[in-house]
């Protein structure tokens, strides 16, 4: 399975993390996203006309949306999708929120780190709206004795939402005000085979570095 990848991309990290968690080995192909804008080059657009990262290729299958890649990796491995009609629908709901997180907190980060043009006050404020929705949901979940977004265990919903939330400080949005979100992130970082990316650290420095897949 080949992943066209950029190490600092939150969306690419979603896929790398999901693959690591289910034990799927990825062949990472680095794309010079910044400063080279290789993803907008004619050669790369032959692969993905949208000119976006990540791109996942498995035999004849080519996926260009990170949530689609999560569904593929999770379904192949089993689990991670929620069970029954209610949870399946809830997972879809959080996948939609993950897209809003990308457009708000993710865009604020791209603005601050890679000089993307954006109305920074507007995207940060939209990001805070998303964080408040997440915080209130996760607080309710904690009251009910749960820690993940859907049901009792981790699903692709958690993996889809986690990176842009955890990287929010890169875009100038602090996470100090969200205790339930911080606990939820801790639960994700505690998962067996969790991997890091720059800006998202393992649970404890003394834990051995997990092997990247």
């Amino acid at each position: 399975m080949i992943l066209y990848d950029y190490v600092l991309s939150a969306s690419c990290y979603k896929v790398r993390l999901m693959a690591a968690l289910v034990g799927e080995k990825l062949d990472l192909q680095a794309v010079d996203f910044h400063p080279g804008r290789e993803h907008k080059s004619p050669a790369f657009r032959d692969l993905n006309p949208a000119g976006t990262l990540p791109v996942l290729v498995d035999g004849d299958l080519l996926l260009t949306e990170s949530t689609a890649m999560l569904v593929y990796l999770a379904t192949k491995a089993g689990g991670w999708m929620g069970s029954g009609a209610v949870q399946a629908a809830q997972v879809q709901g959080w996948l939609a929120l993950s897209a809003r997180l990308g457009a708000s907190l993710g865009m604020a980060r791209l603005h601050d780190m890679l000089h993307y043009p954006a109305d920074i006050a507007a995207v940060r404020s939209a990001g805070v709206d998303c964080l408040r929705e997440l915080e209130s949901h996760l607080t309710e979940a904690r009251f009910a004795g749960r820690i993940f977004l859907v049901g009792d265990g981790p699903t692709i919903a958690d993996i889809a939402c986690f990176p842009n939330v955890a990287l929010a400080p890169d875009g100038g949005v602090a996470l100090n005000d969200y205790p339930s979100i911080r606990l939820w992130m801790r639960a994700i970082r505690s998962l067996e085979r969790f991997i890091e990316m720059p800006g998202i650290h393992r649970l404890h420095e003394l834990k051995p570095a997990p092997e990247a897949v």
């Binding site: 190490v7 680095a30 794309v31 010079d32 400063p35």
Partner: peptide, 8 residues
């Protein structure tokens, strides 16, 4: 591209 990503 790998060199650039490693440094970043």
């Amino acid at each position: 591209a790998d060199l650039i990503q490693f440094q970043q």
